[in-house]
Write a protein that binds this DNA or RNA. Structure first.
Lengths: 199, 199
DNA sequence: TGTACATCAGTGAACGCGCGTTCACTGATGTAC
DNA sequence: TGTACATCAGTGAACGCGCGTTCACTGATGTAC
């Protein structure tokens, strides 16, 4: 074996990491194979020695980019989900899509795809909901699932809105509003109100 | 004037309506001028007699596609925002991106753009938040703003997640969870809990 | 009423460009002797 | 220790294609006489 073992695998990882940032920064359609390879210090022709196609790369990317949520060690169990949403809805995250969650950056495009990328996206969403549900404060699997789904939805949508408005201040204001909304919605509370009554 | 007055304007509107559906169905990058014009029953060359560029069309589109929320006439004032979220988070909306809200379909792409489309998107988001805030049940402008922002974020994110998973059932489950989450979060409640206390 | 005309909405060939993908080739590498 | 060699990761020219945009043109139209 004329090359050090693991050399090709390391190159492959480099391409994956470069592509992950490029996709999130410019969108799937906004990034070409040549872009990715150049940023990885290679030429475009070599790409197909590592991946079958752009679509295959994307599918692997969506599967790979996990994003384990950071939770403060001293966090109370019933405040973990709220802590995750606070960390997610940060200015830093808003300013750095290339290293952030892929749903607000690629979600619209991935929702339209089919095949392998769509399957990866499906798995990505399910895995995140499962994980978030394990941190939800409510009692009962269904209630925790509701909290996790509602929180992730607001996180994703909030980030899109914050990046969609012009100006950092307006974006940060949206983030702050969603943070406050979720802190309130996820706070331990009295039992649910009675169902809507007919007048 | 050899053509009926308003003829060109009607053609222009037809292009705008065709493009609105096409963009939301296939994304900005996924639709070409030739596609739009063909669907409008025209040939691609004529496009530039109506719009300066694809970008100009997009900017006008984002400004135009408003989406006045449908609220039942007999709806109680403090349940209007919740009613809007229920109507938004429907299976029908999930299945028909081409005629639905443009934020879950184009939001990721628009957040990355600049220039006229970005300005339109900014205005679009602000207008929607203003309108939703006017339906929010809380008392006080800031609290209503928080509810409107949180609700729109969850609506947008929830729709993306619902369209991102595979299968109608999984998508509908996500919608139902977000609906329930928001119904709970927007329900009239006791005063907010005390701020986090140190142990 | 019929004909010639000016207008201009719409046509379609052409442009330069960048895309994803292919493939014959190159040359840096570790090994064998 | 030095040289010849086989390997294969990576190169770069080339492909067909579709894109956004341009522009000389066509031909349906309402008007003038």
């Amino acid at each position: 074996m004329p090359w050090q073992p693991g050399h090709k695998e390391r190159t492959r990882q480099r391409i994956l990491e470069t592509a992950a940032a490029a996709f999130r920064a410019h969108g799937i359609a906004g990034v070409g194979i040549a872009d990715i390879m150049q940023r990885a210090g290679l030429t475009h022709g070599g790409f197909y020695a590592h991946f079958e196609s752009k679509e295959a790369l994307l599918a692997e990317e969506v599967q790979r980019v996990g994003g384990a949520p950071k939770i403060p060690a001293e966090c109370r169990p019933d405040e973990k989900l709220a802590a995750i949403t606070e960390a997610y809805l940060s200015s830093r995250h808003r300013e750095h899509p290339e290293s952030g969650c892929l749903i607000p950056t690629l979600g619209c495009e991935l929702a339209r795809t089919g095949g392998a990328p769509k399957r990866s996206f499906d798995a990505h969403i399910r895995a995140r909901l499962d994980r978030l549900a394990s941190y939800a404060p409510a009692s009962g699997a269904a209630a925790r699932r509701r909290q996790a789904t509602g929180a992730l939805a607001a996180m994703v949508g909030g980030m899109i809105l914050a990046r969609g408005v012009e100006g950092s201040d307006a974006g940060d204001q949206i983030l702050a509003d969603v943070r406050a909304f979720l802190a309130d919605a996820l706070a331990p509370r009295h039992p649910r109100r009675a169902p809507r009554s007919k007048p």
